[in-house]
């Protein structure tokens, strides 16, 4: 269940952001799309990897915010993420995401019951340390440091699959640059994590109890001010004994609508999840920002 308050914040921010902006075709603030989209964990970035950009449309002279609904439809599961994030002076980002994972028929097969779904909260903080993703010297990317504290709301699931803990914190450092000369957005993220399937299946397990350092990467080509098409890759640990965990990747297209709305569609491959292979499908996100 997603708390009503999240819907409210989301709708309010989208409603507040849209009409005035559409008239002026953008309004003052960040350049179109440079707040990124919202990851399934709530931080601004791509869909999978956080970037060294700060959520919302404001620059270092103000406060901004964004909210997003993300739905990933897989052959055997569905993942929904509702997230909000505020950006303070284009320096600090605080985010919250509620993830809801629906096991559909697999739940029944595992004895959890059909359409068994379990949730996770992700609290994030990110600080931009140096650089800029667009301006300044080409060789100097924006660099940010972040943390995502994740807590399962269904501790039984983590225990049942053999995870060591029901909560954990990911630490990451990320560098992002839009290389204007080639219209290319490049991002690299290094994450230290012990999360199983983003933390939905708990943290740590028989094959590993410590944080593992895993790379993530995003690349995007800017076709126009409004359209970016690219791909992402995210390596994941493989801590559990009962099921293999694969790396995730996607190809995406993000489109900026009127400066305060971004629609994203991606084909995402999340590999094998809880013994069921071939979990690839469509990711759709609608994000509002101001």
């Amino acid at each position: 269940m997603v708390p009503r308050s999240i819907y409210f914040v989301l709708l309010a921010s989208v409603a507040a952001a849209s009409p005035a902006a559409a008239q002026q075709g953008g309004g003052a603030g960040k350049l179109l799309l440079t707040n990124g989209i919202s990851t399934v964990e709530g931080s601004s970035g791509g869909g999978l990897a956080p970037w060294a950009v700060i959520s919302g449309n404001e620059t270092r002279d103000g406060f901004g915010a964004q909210a997003a609904v993300t739905v990933v439809t897989l052959p055997d599961y569905d993942l929904k993420a509702f997230s909000v994030a505020v950006g303070l002076r284009d320096r600090l980002e605080l985010s919250y995401a509620r993830q809801s994972f629906d096991t559909n028929k697999v739940g029944g097969a595992l004895g959890l019951g059909d359409n068994f779904s379990f949730d996770q909260d992700v609290w994030g903080a990110k600080v931009k340390l140096a650089g800029d993703a667009v301006f300044g010297p080409t060789w100097m990317p924006a660099i940010a440091l972040g943390v995502q504290y994740k807590k399962s709301l269904d501790p039984l699931v983590a225990r049942a699959v053999g995870a060591h803990e029901r909560s954990g914190a990911d630490l990451y450092v990320t560098a992002t640059k839009l290389i204007l000369n080639y219209s290319l957005l490049v991002n690299t993220t290094i994450r230290a994590t012990k999360a199983n399937q983003l933390g939905l299946l708990g943290f740590g397990g028989p094959n590993g109890t410590q944080r593992r350092v895993v790379p993530e990467a995003s690349i995007g080509y800017q076709f126009s001010r409004r359209l970016v098409v690219g791909a992402e890759y995210r390596r994941k640990p493989n801590n559990l004994a009962f099921a293999r965990e694969d790396d995730a990747w996607d190809i995406f297209a993000a489109y900026g609508i009127g400066g305060h709305l971004t629609a994203t569609m991606a084909f995402a491959d999340l590999g094998s999840i809880a013994t069921v292979d071939g979990q690839r499908g469509l990711l759709v996100q609608l994000q509002g920002s101001f």
Partner: peptide, 9 residues
Amino acid sequence: QADMNRLVE
């Protein structure tokens, strides 16, 4: 910064 971005737009 916001002015600069506006200029770019």
